[in-house]
Design a protein around this nucleic acid. Structure first.
Lengths: 215, 215
DNA sequence: GTCTATAATATGATAGAC
DNA sequence: GTCTATCATATTATAGAC
């Protein structure tokens, strides 16, 4: 969580613990609303109500709606990127990608709101993430793309352009969170259904892996 | 376009043509805003301004913001589903899917806003498309899933569950519209760049096709 | 830190003239 | 069909007491 450790670390007092708890209650409530209705469709009233604080009090912790929104986004980016960070050159290529797919689908199952808020922000042109996108994210992707490229050069993966493979991994795994409504409308199941989750992991892994296996 | 042919068809007069033109100018302006900012982030003022009509006048054509939003969504659904409708049992399986990928990426290139609005609606739980999702869309998907299942049974495709293949097709092709900001941040290119478009089609086709080819 | 006003404004929608 | 008010409301944010 980025937004809770801006301050220098001190021994947590009773008060500071209470304050931290309130902050995170607000952040959690905000995520619920923002991820469904977006920043414009969400009122501070509702967020405050769900977090069980007064609106004025909320504005004491986060000086404006936009700052609250940004705090939520920042907290979320780490969760969202964790699976990609875990991809390392010393792993067996196909196993690494197999593992990535599972991790990312776990994120889609366990943090669907994070995935959706991220998606929503992207749809709007990511006005509040532009900086991250151009900086950190881009470098992270460059790193991982280089690893994939290396695997391709060594003949361990079929000839694909790394960026497109990364996009395919993102797209196929996010889809089960972002389009959960549609997935449920069509299949009648959700990722919380364990059997459906496993079947999803297997199908996605199989299709992706066979698509990039060398023969 | 659904929303323009609710009325019984008559010989178009000068007036009716002018009215139709105004309606579609409003719809186009609305799509631009809705697809970026969502229904809540969009004001009728802005839409009216872009469509070059007064706000009151806009409300004469569409009695409320929500009805305008729904009209836009309906117009869009056909465009969005056209590629899937084109999938037919009498085609060569891999060629059919290859073709689908191209068509859908063309939609992502030519109607990115439609794709994004659809995505945004889905993120919110599709409150205004629930009916369509449960009805028409579900049946369409069932039809196409049956075709795919048949291909699998005949040994023309690898063993995959049709729904997951359909999701993969949707996800990988939509991604280039919905996450265009991220795609551009990472690659520096967009689908309007012809070389990048072709390279995208080839990569997606290759990865998907190899992933479901029978060996 | 938390509360009670209250300011300031944006915006969806209507009334009624022309 | 189009316009000029105008209403009604929701909602962000602040001032100032405690």
């Amino acid at each position: 969580m980025n937004s809770t450790d801006k301050q220098p670390v001190k021994a947590p007092t009773r008060r500071s613990r209470a304050v931290a708890a309130k902050r995170s209650a607000i952040l959690a409530a905000a995520l619920e609303y923002f991820s469904q209705f977006g920043i414009h469709g969400t009122s501070l009233d509702k967020v405050a109500e769900r977090a069980d604080v007064s609106k004025t009090n909320l504005l004491y912790y986060f000086p404006s709606k936009e700052e609250l929104y940004i705090a939520v986004l920042k907290d979320l980016l780490d969760v969202w990127l964790a699976p990609l960070r875990a991809l390392r050159a010393d792993q067996h290529p196909l196993e690494a990608i197999r593992h990535y797919i599972r991790l990312k689908l776990e994120v889609s199952r366990d943090y669907p709101q994070a995935s959706r808020l991220f998606c929503m922000e992207m749809l709007q042109g990511a006005p509040l993430l532009k900086a991250e996108l151009a900086g950190d994210l881009r470098h992270l992707v460059e790193d991982k793309a280089a690893i994939i490229e290396q695997w391709v050069r060594e003949g361990k993966l079929a000839e694909v352009q790394p960026h497109h493979l990364i996009f395919m991994l993102w797209a196929t795994t996010q889809h089960y969170a972002d389009f959960a409504t549609q997935v449920e409308a069509v299949t009648g199941r959700t990722l919380s259904d364990e059997a459906f989750f496993n079947q999803t992991v297997e199908n996605v892994q199989k299709m992706v892996i066979e698509g990039i296996r060398v023969r």
